[in-house]
């Protein structure tokens, strides 16, 4: 089971992950990214590159399933305006035992951060907005998996 979904509407992590239950494995690992209240931020806006976004997320899932024995892997990413406290991304994997699912989930979110074409803009309570800069620490985490 491999699934990529881009959503303009609110995402419910439990519903997204339900697809990984009942695959016969003993492990389901997941990561949910949530909009942080970073000093006056009331929402973020996510822009993406339709077509390339889906292709790059599928490539990551293919790479994860080639590297670990997974029964399933899914990524759901929100786009548009997302308020503080709401989920932005859900990554989940299922496997027979926990090690594969835990590692593959970390791999998927680390690589998504540096390879998938999404851009975040923070909207502040005073009405201003600013594009978020990429972090060197995200590059370093992604390179652990090379």
């Amino acid at each position: 089971m491999k699934r990529v979904r881009i959503s303009n509407a609110a995402i419910q992590p439990d519903q997204e992950l339900a697809t990984l239950l009942g695959l016969g494995g003993g492990a389901l690992a997941s990561f949910t990214g949530i909009v942080r209240d970073d000093g006056g931020v009331n929402a973020i806006e996510l822009e993406h590159y339709p077509g390339m976004t889906e292709a790059s997320l599928y490539r990551l899932i293919e790479a994860a399933t080639a590297r670990w024995a997974l029964l399933g892997a899914m990524i759901t990413h929100r786009v548009g305006i997302v308020p503080v406290g709401a989920p932005v991304v859900v990554v989940g994997t299922a496997s027979l035992h926990r090690a594969e699912a835990l590692e593959a989930t970390a791999f998927l979110i680390d690589r998504l951060k540096t390879e998938a074409p999404f851009w975040k803009r923070e909207h502040y309570t005073d009405g201003t907005a600013k594009w978020v800069d990429a972090k060197a620490s995200d590059e370093a985490r992604a390179e652990r998996w090379v």
């Binding site: 990214g33 996510l46 993406h48 590159y49 390339m52 990413h77 932005v88 991304v89 979110i109 998504l112 951060k113 540096t114 390879e115 998938a116 074409p117 999404f118 851009w119 975040k120 594009w131 978020v132 800069d133 990429a134």
Partner: peptide, 10 residues
Amino acid sequence: LAIFPPVTGG
């Protein structure tokens, strides 16, 4: 050809 700043998703 797409041209953009470093990505910041997730």
